[in-house]
C-alpha cells in the first residue's frame, strides 16, 4: 500500500503532529488484529478437509485370529487397504529365520517383522507400484520363495513378506498392531 503512490495530494488529511503517533498505534493494532482474525478464520476451512470423525473411527480394526488355522491366510481391510494375516507353520518360520541377510534387497530379520512368530501380519500392497500380490488363497501362485507373488511386474516375496526377486524396492510393510489377547489383534 505504501509502494503504490496515492494520487491524492500531500497534506490531504490535515496532519496533527500529536495525533500522528496515536493514529499509528491504532492503525497497527487494528491491522494486526484483523490479520490475526483472518488467519484464525482460515483454520476451520483447512481442518474441515482433514479426516472426519467417522473416518478416524474406522482407523483401527480388530481381528479375531482364532478361526485361522495353521497354514491358512486371511485378508482383511484396514484403512482402505488389504492386510495379509498368515498363520505360519514351523517350516515357514524356520525358513524365514534362516535366510542370509546379504541376499536380501531390503535386509530385515524375521524377528524384526513379527511379534509372535506364528503370526505374520503385513500390508498386502506391493512396494513397487501398488498392486495386490497373490498368495493368500490355497491355489494361488506364491512365487519362488513360498510367500507372495505380484503378477503386475513379477516381484517375489518370502515367508516373512520380504522382497527377494523383482522390481519392488522394499519388503511388505508391517502395520502397527497389538495383541489385545492371545487370539485378537488391533491393527492401527
Amino acid at each position: 500500500m505504501s509502494e503504490i503512490s496515492n494520487p491524492s495530494p500531500n497534506g490531504t488529511i490535515a496532519e496533527n503532529p500529536e495525533d500522528e503517533g496515536k493514529r499509528d498505534f491504532l492503525l497497527i493494532s487494528t491491522t494486526t488484529l484483523s490479520l490475526a482474525g483472518i488467519g484464525l478464520a482460515a483454520w476451520p476451512f483447512i481442518h474441515s478437509i482433514n479426516p472426519a470423525k467417522d473416518v478416524l473411527a474406522l482407523a483401527s480394526t480388530e481381528v479375531d485370529l482364532s478361526a485361522i488355522e495353521e497354514g491358512q491366510a486371511v485378508t482383511t481391510m484396514w484403512r482402505g487397504k488389504p492386510v495379509f494375516i498368515r498363520h505360519r507353520s514351523a517350516e515357514e518360520i524356520e525358513g524365514a529365520a534362516s535366510v542370509n541377510l546379504a541376499e536380501l534387497p531390503d535386509p530385515q530379520t524375521d524377528a524384526e517383522r513379527v511379534q509372535r512368530p506364528q503370526w505374520l501380519i503385513t500390508v498386502g500392497v506391493c512396494t513397487h507400484l501398488g498392486c495386490i500380490p497373490s498368495g493368500q488363497k490355497l491355489g494361488d501362485k506364491k512365487g519362488d520363495f513360498g510367500g507372495w507373488f505380484c503378477p503386475c511386474h513379477g516381484s517375489h516375496y518370502d515367508t516373512s513378506g520380504r522382497i527377494r526377486k523383482g522390481p519392488a524396492p522394499f519388503n511388505l510393510r508391517i502395520p502397527e498392531y497389538n495383541f489385545i489377547d492371545d487370539t485378537t489383534i488391533l491393527i492401527g
Partner: peptide, 16 residues
Amino acid sequence: LTAMFYALKRRIWSNI
C-alpha cells in the same frame, strides 16, 4: 475489532 474500526473511522473522518 469493530470498536477499533470505529475509532479509526472517527479519526480519519475528523481531520478533513
